[in-house]
Design a protein around this nucleic acid. Structure first.
Lengths: 200, 200
DNA sequence: GACAGCCTATCTACTAGAAGGTAGACATCA
DNA sequence: TGATGTCTACCTTCTAGTAGATAGGCTGTC
């Protein structure tokens, strides 16, 4: 349902931008209507309730993200470069100010006040992302590219958290460069050979 | 102003809990009134507008946090233990589910839709925290306890981001233990001597 | 001690506007 | 002809915020 009508896509894109700016309770149908130039009632035609809208949005972008990771997987064989491409994607999004936060990370902060179906979608995204990162790290270890201090799964969770924390810091400081300053050393660390006699 | 009346403190405490759950737009005067058992108009007596309320809240807890860090500083001399005490504080808060997220981190996610005075307070908190962490790391390096890959300031930003990201992941997965699983290895890493011939 | 004046804190009752949502008319197009 | 998409006009509930009454507790003064 809600296949490919341009209007419904416009609504979803607009809702995504508004959620990324201010969360689930930070936007209304009136906001969307104003931005894309239709009436509130027309949005209800495409998405009867706000929950319908946001659930559709969240499940669509999760599918898109999964596809994006799969594509990246095929285009770039090297695990280290995969990680760099992933972080570079976000670095560009944040620098553009076009998509300066992860939709799911932002919604996750408000989980206690979100409806259940939405929470399940958000959680699913975290599992998809951390699962992919785990695989990348495992492959990197097998190829001798990464040298991990702990289990790949645990290191993937650490890396994912630092990416989300870096988005938050960039927003808090109002400086997009903060993101790269945090995430790039994290990648470097995964790739560094075990230091031998290094001094600080 | 708003010195120490029990009611105004109750209002602030309640507002904090509600913001931690759902952000700036996730609560109303009616919510607070219901929880603490007074009427909406009485809240307006203490805090004329919502912005007054949240600004008071945010500046009060920032002062409290700064005092808390100073106290911790005096009670615990060892930098590594200071870091563990800091992360342990949050680990306990999250496990209790009493204060399962940092007020400022949560508000920071919504910066694009928050009023300017609030944004300045939030940013100030990030500076206070990252400043303190930087000092702790510097002292640890001087004492030969920490071995950093980069500048203390940069490492402090990385650590702070991982703490906030860990809160987010704990909330997303609905599992408090995730916080420690992410932050504890980060602390361990700072304290580990430069590995010599370590194998993964 | 009684009284007046003021301050603080609470209340009821109200407002204007925004929220999410509905009903039904109208146009368009396969 | 029926499905799709948009519209106007409306509803109910919630939102932040205001006005004005009331009650109790101080403090100064006669």
């Amino acid at each position: 349902m809600t296949g490919g009508s341009s209007t419904s896509t416009d609504i979803l894109d607009c809702a995504r931008a508004l959620i990324i700016a201010g969360g689930y309770n930070g936007f209304s149908y009136a906001n969307i209507a104003e931005v894309i130039g239709i009436r509130k009632a027309s949005i209800h035609h495409h998405f009867p309730t706000k929950l319908d809208l946001v659930c559709t949005l969240v499940s669509r972008y999760r599918a898109e993200a999964a596809k994006g990771l799969a594509t990246l997987e095929q285009a770039i064989p090297d695990p280290l470069e995969q990680l760099r491409a992933y972080s570079g994607y976000w670095e560009a999004c944040i620098a553009d100010a076009q998509r300066p936060f992860c939709l799911y990370a932002l919604l996750a902060t408000q989980i206690p006040v979100l409806p259940e179906p939405l929470v399940l979608e958000i959680r699913a995204y975290f599992h998809v992302l951390s699962g992919w990162l785990t695989q990348v790290l495992q492959r990197g270890v097998q190829q001798g590219i990464f040298h991990l201090a702990g289990e790949a799964k645990a290191e993937a969770e650490i890396f994912m958290a630092s990416v989300h924390g870096a988005m938050l810091s960039a927003r808090a400081y109002g400086d997009p460069r903060v993101f790269g300053a945090i995430v790039n050393p994290m990648i470097q660390r995964l790739a560094s050979p075990p230091a031998v006699g290094a001094r600080s």
